[in-house]
């Protein structure tokens, strides 16, 4: 009988390995189910939720939504608006937050302080009406953003005096762009993406704009850095293996490891301060875009 033949040990080993691999990837948990276009995940301590951007299929606008991590319910972060809102960033306590607003042919950054009931629309510093990629410091006092996809500025929100409260953060490059700043939990450093060395890599700098240094070096795109709650690792998106996946790099050893593996896009990782070994990210599966969570328990980032 064919079915009674003993299975060779080699086949058993292969099966065991396959089961092991399957177990590793099964750590991924799907958090949303609607499959709509999403981006920009960020953890908000105030409401203990993930705030993300999602396409409103009725209007085509991008809306801020929030995912309750306890019951996985999804609801609008704020009242419906006739403008697109995205790129949410929030302070460590969740009380100060900011986002990018697209209205007509211009884009700006808005900042809100829940406790002080204070808000600001950041001033335009260049001729170009395009501002994006805001990042708020953990203490909620400073907002760094990119103007004209070229120059980073910092706004002293604690002071909040319009252009008087702005300082230039990075020098304009002739033919490169700095993108996607992300504060360290200490507030003393930032990670960001730039193509200043030609392709997109992750860089670090001090919170006064000095000490800029390259963190990643790979063929292809490295983008969307997110610094871990302990400040020791940076999660980012890279296509170094052919398509967009989430990677984590250890800042001490500079060793990186892929944490997602899928034929479709994984992007926009964020850390969960309450679960410092877990990442939430935007993943595409079967053509649908949802939020996923993965545990990093098995990462091996120690120096060799």
């Amino acid at each position: 009988m064919r079915f009674c033949q003993p299975i060779c040990p080699g086949l058993l080993l292969i099966l065991a390995l396959l089961v092991g691999v399957e177990a590793a990837w099964s750590q991924e948990q799907q958090l949303t189910e609607d499959g709509r276009l999403k981006r920009d995940a960020a953890y908000c301590a105030h409401s203990r939720c993930i705030v993300f951007t999602q396409e409103d299929h009725r209007t085509g606008k991008m809306r801020l939504m929030k995912l309750n991590l306890e019951d996985l319910s999804v609801s609008p972060f704020e009242a419906e608006s006739d403008e697109s809102r995205r790129e949410f960033s929030v302070s460590a306590d969740g009380n100060v937050y900011c986002f990018n607003v697209v209205r007509g042919l211009s884009s700006s950054i808005r900042v809100f302080d829940r406790k002080a009931s204070q808000q600001a629309t950041l001033p335009k510093m260049d001729k170009d009406p395009w501002s994006n990629w805001p990042a708020i410091s953990p203490d909620g006092k400073t907002v760094v953003w990119v103007e004209g996809a070229r120059v980073m500025y910092a706004y002293n929100f604690a002071e909040n005096k319009g252009r008087e409260s702005v300082r230039r953060f990075t020098a304009p490059g002739d033919d490169y762009s700095d993108y996607m700043p992300s504060f360290f939990p200490s507030g003393k450093q930032l990670a960001f993406a730039s193509n200043r060395d030609h392709d997109f890599e992750i860089y670090l700098m001090n919170s006064d704009g000095t000490g800029q240094q390259r963190l990643t070096e790979s063929r292809g795109i490295d983008m969307h850095p997110a610094v871990s709650p302990d400040g020791k690792r940076v999660a980012f998106t890279s296509n170094r293996d052919g398509n967009y996946e989430i990677y984590v790099i250890d800042l001490a050893t500079r060793k990186s490891q892929r944490v997602t593996q899928n034929e479709e896009v994984d992007n926009f990782a964020c850390w969960l301060p309450t679960r410092p070994n877990e990442l939430v990210y935007v993943g595409q599966r079967d053509g649908k875009t949802d939020l996923y969570r993965i545990s990093l328990g098995s990462l091996s980032l120690a120096a060799e």
């Binding site: 276009l37 981006r39 697109s84 884009s107 762009s177 993108y179 996607m180």
Partner: peptide
């Protein structure tokens, strides 16, 4: 300017970010 069906290919600003994302 903004992702989704409102966004054409006229990528003057932040063009690389839009193309890759």
């Amino acid at each position: 300017l903004e992702e989704g069906p409102l966004m054409g290919w006229d990528t003057h600003r932040n063009g690389f970010g839009q193309l890759m994302n």
